[in-house]
Design a protein around this nucleic acid. Sequence first.
DNA 1: CTGAAAGCGCTTACAG
DNA 2: CTGAAAGCGCTTACAG
Lengths: 338, 338
Amino acid sequence: MANNQNKRITLQEVAEHAGVSTTTASLVVRNNPRISQATRERVLNSIEELGYIYDRVAANMRSQSSNLIGVIVTNIANKFISEFLIGAQNKLEEFGYTVLLGTTFDNAEKQQNLISTMVEHRVDGLILNPSSRSLEKTVKHLNNLKIPLVLANRELHTINADYVGIDYEQGAYQAVTHLVKKGHRRIAFLGGIRESSTWIGRMEGYRRAYKENDLLFDESIIIDSSPTIEGGEEAALALLSSSNPPTAIFCFSDMIAFGVMKVLSKQGIEVGSDMDIVGFDNIPDAEIYHPPLTTVSSFPKSIGIQAAKLLHSKISGESTELQRIILKPELVVRDTSK
Amino acid sequence: MANNQNKRITLQEVAEHAGVSTTTASLVVRNNPRISQATRERVLNSIEELGYIYDRVAANMRSQSSNLIGVIVTNIANKFISEFLIGAQNKLEEFGYTVLLGTTFDNAEKQQNLISTMVEHRVDGLILNPSSRSLEKTVKHLNNLKIPLVLANRELHTINADYVGIDYEQGAYQAVTHLVKKGHRRIAFLGGIRESSTWIGRMEGYRRAYKENDLLFDESIIIDSSPTIEGGEEAALALLSSSNPPTAIFCFSDMIAFGVMKVLSKQGIEVGSDMDIVGFDNIPDAEIYHPPLTTVSSFPKSIGIQAAKLLHSKISGESTELQRIILKPELVVRDTSK
DNA sequence: CTGAAAGCGCTTACAG
DNA sequence: CTGAAAGCGCTTACAG
C-alpha cells in the first residue's frame, strides 16, 4: 500500500502541481469566470490527475455557511411524513442544499437532542415537524435560534416561526359535513393526540359542522389515541363498548381509520353500510384498501415543497416577515361512505 | 438589534470570559477528565452565560473526522426502505453519528451526485442501498473510496464492499415450494427489475423450486416490471392476456402483489381460491390488506441495524475483512394462499 | 488575470 | 492540572 493512500489531496497540492496559486485553484473549483480558459484547464487536469476531492467542510468553515439543511420529522414510517419528506428533500436538493435528517419518533427529548446536534453542525436552516409534545427548553432554544426555522404540519403557538401546513379545521369540517349529508346525526371522532395542534384543528372543524347542523355534541364519542393503526384499534374498541354507538366515524388519519376498520370487520360490522368511515391524509394505501377509504386529501408532498421554498427564501434573505402557508384540503369520496 | 446578534460566540471568547486558555475550554466541552472540577465549573458557567454553541464543523475539520454517516436509499416512500432506514438511523445515532440522507429515486445520475456530495462532506462512512442501475463511473468511484462502505439490500458484484441483505434465493424458494405443496404446478413470477440482484436472487430460488419439483419452466409467465403497485398492475394485465394462465403467482414484492390483486379483483378473479398469491417483504400493509397477504418476511429494520453495526466496526477499525451478512427470511402464510 | 497572506474556530502535540 | 503555538484545508480581501 502506498503511504499516501489515506491522505486526501489538498487544493494547495493541486495548485503546486498546476503551477498556480491556491487562490487560482480555489477560483477554478468554484467555477469563477475570472480565470482564463488556459489556466482553468491546467488546474482541472491536475485535479483529475491527482484525484483531488473538494473538501466542503473546510470550505464551509471558511465561508461560514454549510449548505446543510436540518429536517426533523416525527416518523418516516408514516406515509404522510415520508411523502412530506420527499417533497422537502427534492426541493432542497434542487436549491443545492444537502439534507441532514433526524427522526424524533415523537419523543420530546430526542427532538431536543436532534435540534442541538443540527445547530452544532451549523445547518443553514431548519425544517421542523414538531413532536406532539416539546420541552420548554426546546421552545426557548427555537425562539433564540439565529437561523431560519420553518415549522411544518404541526404548529407550535409558543414559537415565533414560519409555518406550512394544511387547514385541518376545514378538512374536518368537510369530512363531517359530508357524513351529515349522508344522513348521519351521530358521528364519532376517533384517534390522534388531544394536545397536538393537528388534533385541535380537526376538533374545531368537527365542532363547526356539529353546530351548523344542530347535532347533539357528545364528548363520549370523541376518543383520542396514539396516531397509529394500533391507536385506531384501541379507540374503536373503546367506542364499541359504549352504550350508544354512532352511525359514522370521522378518523384523525387514514392510519387510524385502518385500525378502526380492522376492529369493525372483526366484529362483523360492515363498513360502508352498518357504519360509514372517513379518514384523513389520503395516503396511497387509502385507495387500495378494502374497501377503498373516503378521506381528506392533504398533499403532504406539497407541504414539503412549500416548506423548502419558504426556508430557502428566508436563508437568501428574500422574505423576512413571518409567514403562514395554509394549504386547502379536498374530500375524496370512496366506498366507506357512499 | 444588537450588532452581535448574528455572530456566534467562540470557544476563545468563552476561555477569556472564564480566565483560562482555549486548550482548557476545549477540554471542558469535550468532557476531558483531566480538568479540575473548579475550572470545569467556571468554564461551564461562562458557556451558559455567553450562550456558547459548540462548532462541530470546526472541530471536525481540525480532528479530521465528521461524525457524519451518509445513508443513500432508493426511495423512502417504500415501506421496506423506510423500515430499513429507521433501523440504520437509530443504530447510527446510538453510536453518536449524525445521518446525512440521500434519496436516489432509483436514478443512477442522482446516485452518483449524492455519493460525491457526501464524500465532499467528509462523511466517516457510507451505507448505500444501490439503485437498480449504477453508472460505470460510480462503480469506479466506490471501489476507490477511502472510507468504509456498506452495501444494503441490493448487491453490486462489481464492487468490493461489505454487504448486508437477506437471502432472496431462499425466500423465493420457500414461497414457490409453499405454492407447490398447495398443489400448484404452474406458478408465475411477476414484477421487479430483471437486472437487479434482488430480482436475480429470487429468480434463482424460483428455478430451484421448479427443478426440485419437476415443474415445467415457462419464460412466458415470468414478467418483470418497475417495483411499484403500478408495475404490478401492468405485469398482471400482461399475464392475463396470455393463452395459458397460471394457477398461482409469486410476486417480487408486496407492492407488486397489491397491484396484481387490484387487477385480479377488477376482473372478478377471486384471490385465494381462483388464484393463489405470495408476496415478498411482509410490509405492515400485508397484514391489514384484504385479503391478508401471504408473504416472505424480510426484516428490513434488522438489515438497517446490521448495516449500521458493520459500518461502525469498520470505522473504528475493529473489523477489516470484507463481510457479507445474509439474513434468513421467513414465510408468513395468510389468506391469499390457504 | 493572478498571487501572498490572513483567518474561519476548533484540536493537538508539546512543554511546564 | 494548564497554556502558547501551530495547523486542519479552504476562502477572502487586498494588491498588482
